[in-house]
Write a protein that binds this DNA or RNA. Structure first.
Length: 656
RNA sequence: GGCGGCGUAGCUUAGUUGGUUAUAGCGGCCGGUUCAUACCCGGCAGGUCGUUGGUUCGAAUCCGACCGCCGCUACCA
């Protein structure tokens, strides 16, 4: 007999940048992938699920330094805290890669050499903006209001030698890849974005090295340079499989990847740069790249609550891991952004997990206990009513598989709930409590309860890729183990009559939503949590950046801060963010451009006192020379406010 | 400014190529039931499908304008 090729599935999350605290947005991607990976395993695939951390770069160096830690100590700590989080959330990855791992470093170096020899990497000078204190180069587009994006100080023009990857060469190939292969990049709107914004205008070659940053992988042909993020980070998807090492059997087995999953913010790197690199290396292109939406933390409009518990660990310990996984997988429409609110979470938990699933198990096991002393009866007397239930169960795998292939995880879960709902309805229609009153109806009653037990077995089986403890609790009641594969599980008749059935504990406690919300409010208030509603956490991990390194008074005295009075204020044409001001700083009037158009109506600012940084080097913004800076503060919700003196002072008053 | 997307019941949302009374879930109300976690089952209410013109026998669905929200991007990430 011919052995057919085993079915394989390689799925990846992005590697996470360990500079801050982990939040529930990181969890979202990873849990979705986990569910897909588990599903594929049970569906007969040999699966490899990869996740990990992206550990190089200046920021890492800086954060470690600011925390007074050795870089590797800091990184070890971060990686292990992430692994702990995945363990808590039941994430069963097959490999956790760290870009500081030996084999990865070697693979990156080999790839650099290969591309260099091929001529796809070349050395060139480029002009950039250099921030001396930060020792970093920035492109014009990276500057924020003309200032260093890291420290906000003025930068100066300088030249740097760097290595470039000939990305431009691959423009047409990538266009062709996306256009002729619609399943490669999804959702479809991302294809348009990539094509219109980058590909059709033509790609620019990509700077792939840095000479100012030390914390990175050294280029084998030029030790003064380290790999800049692109090649380093993206290569993890193949280095993790042993590409470029002595043992590349996993690579041969699993590449090309079946699915690179990520948040929409990094689709560009995965759908353009990554395929181009692979093309340059003559490696096959991954089959699918999917950019999912963000999990947003919306304000709970229905209540006065403005606070949300968003710490995943806190959420799990309070409401169970399965409830958190269920909510993330069920409530966030895939491909779109989804909003997390405590209310929605609690309502979902009650409606689906307590009332739907938990109560079904409860009433079923209770009846087997009550009417058959806890021994599973035999199915003896079939009826028309049974057919619908069996059919629903029989079609489940087909339907769920279809949704999972389309990456519609919420719909896949919905499919399981149709069987849960059908089972609850089946109880109502068959009325076991009426059958129980009549001895002659006992065989029929036994059949009904047997069918319900079978239904629960099937439900638990299909839940097991998505939830962790709950399926096992259900199997436990029937003294079963979770099957390894879906194959053959949907047909009724697997459970052995005579099995001892345990009455289940409550799967999930029903909660009073209003009470729970006020408890959360009270707790947050006592913890001093401020309004974190409306905050997009995935884009906001550095809402309150860590304290910068200490300066002495001499450093401080270099700043020339003065009170200024706004004389004129207007919108900068062709700009969404910028306002142009004339500010009286006592000795003269200055033109200052500031990126606060979103927060202020210019006409309302005329005559107001503000704080001005007067000796900041001028910078051109949208063609206007801005000579100074208006001090502003931003809170965690993204609100930006000008800093003004408590009472009006003479223009030019010195701030010290 | 360029490109793209979205706007359907209180909330979340189905509506591939235009066609009978426009989904479904949650929440609300009413009824039924009692095995069960005040649960389950049934029913009802609630929508001028963002606004406005047009094409058509007929539009949530196609075209134009407008309003509102969002994403990507802006002289080499």
């Amino acid at each position: 007999m011919l052995k057919s090729d085993p079915k394989r599935f390689y799925i990846t999350t992005p590697i996470y940048f360990p500079s801050g605290k982990w939040h529930i947005g990181t969890c979202y991607t990873t849990i979705v992938c986990d569910a897909i990976a588990r599903f594929k395993k049970m569906d007969g695939f040999e699966v490899f699920y990869l996740t990990g951390t992206d550990e190089h770069g200046q920021k890492i160096e800086k954060v470690a330094k600011d925390k007074n830690l050795k870089i590797m100590d800091f990184l070890d700590e971060q990686a292990s805290s992430l692994k702990k989080l995945w363990e808590l959330l039941g994430v069963g990855y097959d490999k956790f890669i760290r870009t500081t791992d030996d084999y990865h470093v070697k693979a990156v170096q080999r790839i650099f050499s290969k591309l260099y020899e091929k001529g796809d990497i070349y050395k060139a000078k480029y002009e950039g903006h250099y921030c001396t204190p930060c020792e970093s180069f920035w492109a014009s587009s990276q500057l924020i209001d003309g200032k260093c994006p890291d420290c906000g100080r003025t930068t100066e023009l300088a030249e740097e030698e760097s290595y470039f990857f000939r990305l431009s060469k691959y423009t047409n190939q990538i266009i062709d890849l996306i256009e002729s292969n619609p399943s490669f990049l999804n959702p479809k709107s991302r294809q348009n974005e990539m094509l219109n914004n980058f590909l059709r205008p033509g790609l620019q070659d990509l700077c792939v090295s840095r000479s100012t940053c030390k914390w990175g992988i050294k280029l084998p042909f030029d030790e003064k340079h380290v790999a800049y993020v692109w090649i380093d980070a993206l290569v993890n998807y193949i280095s993790a499989l042993g590409y470029g090492s002595d043992d590349d059997s996993l690579f041969k087995k699993f590449w090309p990847a079946d699915l690179h999953m990520m948040g929409k913010e990094i689709v560009r790197f995965h759908s353009i740069i990554w395929p181009a690199l692979l093309m340059a290396l003559d490696i096959p292109i991954p089959k699918r790249v999917y950019g999912h939406g963000w999990l947003l933390f919306g304000e709970d409009k229905m209540s006065k609550s403005k606070n949300n518990i968003i710490d995943p660990i806190e959420l799990c310990s309070r409401y169970t891991v399965d409830a958190v996984r269920y909510y993330l997988l069920r409530e966030v429409p895939f491909g779109n952004d989804g909003a997390y609110t405590n209310r929605a979470f609690l309502l979902r938990r009650n409606a689906d997990l307590c009332n739907g699933l938990g109560n079904l198990l409860s009433r079923t096991t209770a009846m087997i206990d009550k009417y058959f002393s806890g021994v599973l009866p035999s199915p003896l007397v079939d009826s028309e009513l049974d057919l619908g239930l069996k059919e629903t169960a029989n079609n489940m795998l087909k339907h769920i598989r279809c949704h999972m292939d389309a990456l519609s995880v919420p719909d896949a879960l919905g499919e399981i709930w149709t069987l849960i709902d059908a089972s609850n309805k089946y109880i109502d229609e068959t009325k076991p409590w009426v059958l129980a009153k009549n001895n002659s109806d006992m065989p029929r009653l036994g059949t009904v309860l047997y069918n319900l037990a079978e239904s629960l077995r099937i439900i638990a089986t299909f839940l097991s890729p998505f939830l962790i403890d709950t399926p096992n609790k259900i199997f436990d009641c029937f003294s079963l183990e979770c099957p390894k594969l879906f194959d053959g599980v949907t047909a009724f008749g697997l459970l052995k009559p005579g099995t001892v059935v345990k009455i289940s504990d409550k799967l999930f406690d029903r909660l009073d939503v209003e009470k729970e919300l006020s408890t959360i409010d009270a707790q947050n208030a006592s913890l001093g949590c401020h309004d974190i509603a409306k905050t997009d956490v995935s884009a906001n991990e550095n809402a309150f950046p860590i304290i910068k390194s200490q300066i002495d008074h001499n450093d401080f005295s270099k700043l020339d801060l003065r009170v200024g009075i706004i004389k004129t204020a207007e919108h900068v044409k062709k700009s969404e963010k910028l306002l142009k001001f004339t500010v009286d700083i006592g000795i003269e009037e200055r033109t200052i451009v500031s990126g606060i158009a979103k927060y202020y109506d210019p006409s309302a600012l005329i005559g107001k006192s503000v704080t001005v940084v007067c000796n900041l080097a001028p910078v051109k913004l949208c063609g206007i020379l801005s000579n100074g800076m208006l001090l502003c503060a931003e809170d965690s919700s993204g609100d930006v406010v000008l800093i003004s003196p408590h009472k009006d002072l003479q223009a030019g008053s010195v701030v010290s």
